[in-house]
């Protein structure tokens, strides 16, 4: 190390390595940035052309309830409504279940609850969405057909399938939040003679509510964007359903079914891109809401 002629060589090696590392990782990040910019740019350009080039009125698109491309009617309300309805219902079904699962793991039987439920939740998260669709089609739809009015397919079936799919998202976030609670919070409540349920209801749930809501919003985001599982069980009728057991459509299901049957550049095709743009904008909204909730959580 004392020999001085080694030093410049080492320095050069050092500089080269720094240069390689910085260059390589920066390129990878640039790739990410380029991708997101191009997704937003291309989807938005295509989505806007329905209104800018094909002169479909924005309000007709957003609030028109008739989807009939042959008659030049491009009302997307049934699909927007279907997407919101199914994902909201899915969140309504999944949230209490998820919170119960999280409480089961952290409060009721912390000793073995996690060992039992954690793998279950992870497996539920790992099952591919087409498999959910297939199971929905083979078990849920016949069951609904026999139990409720209608054909079995419809909003209810879609919402139930989605609720199972988003269960892991909400559960894992709720479990993390519950696990991160300071011990003394609970002990203080028990110390006052409160029962476990009083503690859960009065102290624990209010404290972790922002986190649970974050989970719910993330779950809804997933439900809103899920395509194939819903498409397989919802029936795909282009109407606003009047009952939960009636066939309906979502934004994703319409895109899935019609994208390859329409010609690029046609009005109908552009209208599908406008729906994709709504999906994209809703993603922004969901991310924004999650950020708001997280900020509140930190305070």
């Amino acid at each position: 190390m004392k020999s001085n002629q080694d030093t410049p060589l080492l320095l050069r090696k050092h500089r080269t390595e720094e240069w390689i590392g910085r260059g390589y990782t920066t390129i990878c990040v640039l790739f990410l940035i380029v991708i997101i910019i191009s997704i937003v740019y291309f989807v938005a350009t295509k989505g806007i052309s329905t209104f800018a080039i094909n002169n479909v009125s924005l309000s007709d698109f957003l609030f028109g309830s008739t989807w009939s491309p042959d008659d030049n009617k491009f009302g997307a309300l049934p699909f927007i409504y279907g997407s919101f309805l199914t994902s909201l219902l899915a969140a309504v079904i999944a949230s209490p279940l998820s919170v119960c699962a999280a409480l089961f793991m952290t409060e009721i039987v912390p000793s073995w609850g996690k060992k039992l439920l954690q793998p279950v939740i992870e497996l539920l998260a790992g099952i591919p969405s087409v498999v959910y669709g297939f199971i929905g089609l083979s078990i849920l739809v016949p069951f609904m057909r026999d139990t409720f009015p209608g054909q079995g397919i419809g909003v209810a079936a879609g919402a139930i399938v989605l609720s199972i799919m988003i269960l892991p998202t909400i559960t894992s976030i709720a479990t993390d939040a519950l696990g991160a609670l300071p011990r003394n919070l609970k002990e203080a409540s028990y110390g006052l003679g409160a029962t476990r349920w009083q503690t859960i209801y009065g102290v624990i749930i209010p404290t972790v509510l922002p986190s649970i809501l974050t989970g719910v919003v993330l779950g809804m985001a997933r439900a809103f964007g899920e395509a194939l599982a819903v498409q397989m069980v919802i029936g795909n009728a282009p109407h606003i359903p009047t009952s939960l057991f009636e066939s309906a459509s979502t934004l994703t299901s319409v895109i899935t079914l019609n994208m390859s049957n329409t010609v690029m550049g046609s009005v109908q095709n552009n209208a599908l891109w406008s729906m994709a743009m709504i999906l994209m904008l809703m993603t922004f909204v969901f991310v924004f809401v999650v950020r708001l909730l997280e900020r509140r959580h930190k305070l």
């Binding site: 985001a221 994709a276 993603t283 991310v287």
Partner: peptide, 15 residues
């Protein structure tokens, strides 16, 4: 990264 991970896969597919 957060937005990209929340994009519906069908939107990525369309892109």
């Amino acid at each position: 990264v957060e937005v990209l991970s929340s994009f519906p896969s069908i939107v990525v597919g369309l892109f």
